[in-house]
Nucleic acid binder design. Structure first.
Lengths: 215, 215
DNA sequence: AACAATTATCTTGTATACAAGATTGTTGAC
DNA sequence: GTCAACAATCTTGTATACAAGATAATTGTT
């Protein structure tokens, strides 16, 4: 099943906004975008609506749509929410995860460890994502899983930044170990708590996130 | 600032889907809807996209959009997720809620009690919603607040049903009292736990929800 | 009569044309 | 020179026209 042009444009625009190609408050000109993508305004408008719906842009009627890069406050809020979603996933996963799921999780964590040992931050970034997605899956709640995936996707660019900092990868990995253990033990509260603080932005991580915003 | 026609249509369509006017899997015909609303296909298409984004309909490329009424499984999943979101709000609210916020919460609960005493289920439904929204607000996290509001809105029709059952209103109210108390005391864990089980669908409530689905 | 293939029709997706509100620039009055 | 009102232009929102894929129907063959 082929994607329609509007969806392709939406994805590309999403990437552009993620990359910081557009400054906060910048207007997304339908006509310019239409020319750029060599299409009419119609698919561009559909794509813009998608961006608006996903919160990456704001629409002011009869004025246009403007990109909405999250500021420090909103970023913290999103990470806070992500932490709670992950805690919720962990809570369920501790009770519901199958033996196979636990195996997949362990395997995913092995790949994370591998990346750390090689000092490959880029690879850790990818494998870490997969690790967390196994937990979402383990919650055995498709709706919650989708919500978690949605927010994970939006926070993607900022997670990436944090890994650049010295010692972060190793610490993250050691937290993973504790998470796997708690899930294997079926300890709901422990799993939820570790995951919450694993994802939450506190102390050191706060400075790192803020530092990343300027670069 | 005036709404555009497409948004009005989106809202009306949303209401129609909520009311169960459309069966699950039914196709939303662009042309028929355009005729019905006395408008061209363009605003209808925009409205349909909104429905798809909010999860109330599914789009199959080159086939059309079809309404997606949640089945029992998805409903349970949504309630589970809602419970976790509310627990998260409670967790934050216990620490962050201002004196003014606590007052508003108490006032909202007074109105709930009033509705119970009058046996006015419809009014309780409204005031209960406001009560919970005060908690979302009290979490002092706009992003989380919006997520909670979004899901609360989607679950609206099903919450309404549950209140029809004998004793449910009184029990709900007594749980409210405990919630207010925990928040006032700043007891994060207690607030989170009570809210979770207050919202979650377990035991009796499960049967009630299922019963409501058939009517 | 049943099945396959081709054609007709219908529906979505995209392009273009038009309408209406918003912004900006100019002109005129004080 | 400044402010206000009007006009010109630009941009969004809606309507219509066209293109392409999907479904249904009809016809031909076995």
């Amino acid at each position: 099943m082929e994607l329609k042009r509007a969806d392709q444009i939406a994805e590309q625009l999403e990437q552009l906004v993620f990359k910081g190609e557009y400054a906060d408050g910048e207007r997304l000109d339908e006509i310019k975008l239409a020319e750029h993508f060599r299409v009419s305004r119609t698919p561009v408008r559909e794509a813009l609506q998608k961006l608006v719906m996903s919160g990456m842009a704001e629409q002011i009627p009869r004025r246009g749509v403007f990109v909405r890069q999250p500021g420090p406050v909103e970023l913290i809020e999103m990470f806070e929410t992500m932490a709670e979603l992950e805690a919720a996933c962990g809570r369920f996963a501790a009770v519901r995860m199958s033996e196979g799921g636990l195996d997949r999780l362990a395997k995913a964590n092995d790949k994370c460890r591998d990346a750390v040992e090689r000092g490959d931050a880029e690879r850790y970034y990818v494998e870490n994502e997969a690790f967390h997605q196994e937990i979402y899956r383990g919650a055995a709640n498709s709706f919650l899983q989708n919500e978690a995936l949605r927010l994970q996707n939006r926070l993607k660019p900022y997670r990436r930044m944090q890994l650049r900092f010295r010692g972060r990868m190793a610490q993250s990995l050691s937290e993973h170990e504790a998470i796997v253990e708690a899930l294997r033990a079926g300890d709901t509260e422990k799993a939820a708590n570790i995951l919450r603080s694993h994802v939450a932005v506190q102390g050191e991580k706060f400075q790192q996130l803020m530092a990343g915003l300027k670069g």
